[in-house]
């Protein structure tokens, strides 16, 4: 016990700490030994293609899925033993909305607060405050089914905040939303971050990860393949800029040998050639000099998407 006290005096213990965490469903290994630490106040992302094990990891952290192997501490407790105490301090936004369709919007928030053991007076005030936050005040007494997808999402996020959680788990929070709705949601999540709420987000949207996450891991096939902040990952696994040369289908292959040596890395796709380089404009002039005549060309900054595709491949995962 003394050791534990000493540690907490030195540095705050992480909100989530996983070591060699494994999740198996029968023979299938969804999560194959991951190490993760999430500290207070940060926005941490699980990035990965479908089936990478993000949601399984998230469900274990959310104490609704027992781990198969390894160690997991959430809020310094063991999910297997203290599930209810941990969940009392979590906010959860699931991948698919599971709002209570038999209740109104206001009732959804109030009843959910009651599951946390909060008083009637408290949840009444909290519901009003959260509807304001989610811009749903005018719909307070409407049925859930009358809401648009974006509104339902906002209500789900509002609901997850009813207990003022220490840690908010968001499983693909903006999947299926139109750009307006996504930006509004990001705005709300950013505000929460400013308020000091720790966020744990899974996503396969790179822009979402770049917008929201201070630090992230890229998962593929149940394993973590890279870890860092978005700029660190870009610096480490991609280049500063990317030159994209577009060709008629089938012609790109011939160009590959011509542009050899003009960039740190060259990727040949059926219709494009990508040159990863520190200076896109310089590379563009060099390719022109070598007589390459693409249909169109584009110099852009490297993004997390480049990192992601490099690490998890371009093959479609179903």
């Amino acid at each position: 016990m003394a050791a534990v006290g000493e540690r907490s005096a030195r540095e705050p213990s992480p909100l989530v700490s996983a070591k060699a965490l494994v999740k198996r469903f029968g023979e299938f290994e969804a999560v194959r030994g991951i190490d993760v630490e999430v500290v207070k106040g940060e926005a941490f992302g699980f990035l990965g293609p479908n089936g990478a094990g993000k949601s399984s990891a998230m469900r274990m952290v959310g104490c609704v899925s027992p781990r198969s192997d390894g160690d997991l501490r959430v809020l310094d407790m063991d999910p297997q033993v203290d599930g209810p105490s941990i969940r009392a301090r979590l906010g959860v936004v699931p991948q698919e909305d599971n709002l209570d369709t038999e209740l109104s919007i206001r009732q959804n928030l109030q009843v959910y607060g009651r599951y946390f053991g909060l008083s009637r007076a408290h949840v009444r005030a909290k519901a009003t405050e959260l509807m304001e936050f989610a811009q749903l005040t005018e719909r307070a007494d409407d049925e859930v089914d009358t809401l648009s997808g974006g509104m339902k999402r906002r209500l789900t996020i509002a609901r997850s905040l009813v207990n003022d959680p220490d840690l908010l788990l968001l499983d693909e929070p903006t999947t299926g939303l139109d750009p307006q709705a996504r930006h509004l949601l990001w705005d709300r999540l950013f505000r929460l971050k400013q308020l000091g709420v720790t966020l744990l987000i899974t996503t396969h949207y790179m822009d979402e990860a770049e917008q929201l996450c201070d630090r992230l891991v890229i998962m593929d096939n149940g394993r973590i393949v890279a870890e860092g902040s978005p700029p660190e990952l870009i610096a480490c696994y991609s280049s500063r800029e990317v030159l994209e040369l577009r060709f008629a289908p089938g012609e790109s292959g011939d160009v590959a040998s011509t542009v050899d040596g003009l960039a740190d890395r060259v990727e040949v796709l059926p219709d494009r050639v990508l040159l990863y380089t520190e200076n896109g404009e310089a590379a563009l002039s060099a390719t022109h000099a070598r007589g390459v005549r693409p249909l169109s060309c584009l110099v852009r900054r490297s993004t997390l998407e480049d990192v992601f595709l490099r690490l998890t491949g371009r093959t479609l995962v179903d």
Binding site: G62, V64, G83, P84, S85, R87, A88, L90, V92, P94, E96, N98, L99, D100, T101, E102, Y112, Y115, F116, G117, S160, N163
Partner: peptide
Amino acid sequence: ARTYEGMLATPVG
């Protein structure tokens, strides 16, 4: 309705 999944994300077991 996944009503119970919503409940299970709270302390409710």
